[in-house]
């Protein structure tokens, strides 16, 4: 996939860090403000998609990106399952909010509400890598055609 013009490159260079920071903020504050792991993950994936579309990518680099995105996506869903299994390890139920009972924290603070922020982070990693993997797979498919 070829890159776009100089104007698009410069604008996306300015915008991409802001989009990335906004995605991180939405993931981290998912238990306080509207948003959460899903919305923040899509924002992070959109940041990478914007950079790939603006700057272009060779076929070999895209294949490396695809492998890494698949790996990180599997890691994200594994992390989510591991957080769910913490309840079983502790001796209670699957998906029980183990930190919420012992150390609830102040409602409204960033470090509160037990495993909910951890689940948000795991889902954010999974969604970001999943959508980027779908995009980069379509991009690799376009390389095979004779344009």
């Amino acid at each position: 996939m070829q890159g776009m013009s100089l104007i698009v490159k410069k604008i996306s260079q300015i915008m991409a860090p802001s989009i990335f920071i906004l995605g991180m903020y939405v993931v981290a504050h998912g238990h306080l403000t509207p948003g959460g792991g899903f919305a923040g993950g899509v924002l992070i994936a959109g940041c990478f998609t914007l950079l790939i579309l603006a700057y272009g990518s060779s076929k070999e680099r895209s294949l490396v990106f695809k492998e890494k995105a698949s790996l990180i996506e599997s890691g994200g869903i594994f992390l989510f399952l591991f957080i769910a299994l913490l309840g079983l390890i502790q001796g209670t139920l699957f998906f029980v909010n183990i930190f919420s009972r012992s150390n609830p924290g102040v409602p409204g603070a960033l470090f509160s509400s037990g495993i909910i922020p951890l689940c948000n982070i795991a889902i954010g990693v999974e969604v970001a890598a999943a959508l980027f993997a779908i995009f980069i797979t379509f991009a690799i498919m376009r390389f095979g055609e004779k344009l």
Binding site: G30, H31, P34
Partner: peptide
């Protein structure tokens, strides 16, 4: 019950 202010997050993740 959960300590999360955003009730949607409390429902979908707890």
């Amino acid at each position: 019950g959960t300590g999360a202010v955003n009730l949607v997050a409390a429902i979908i993740l707890d």
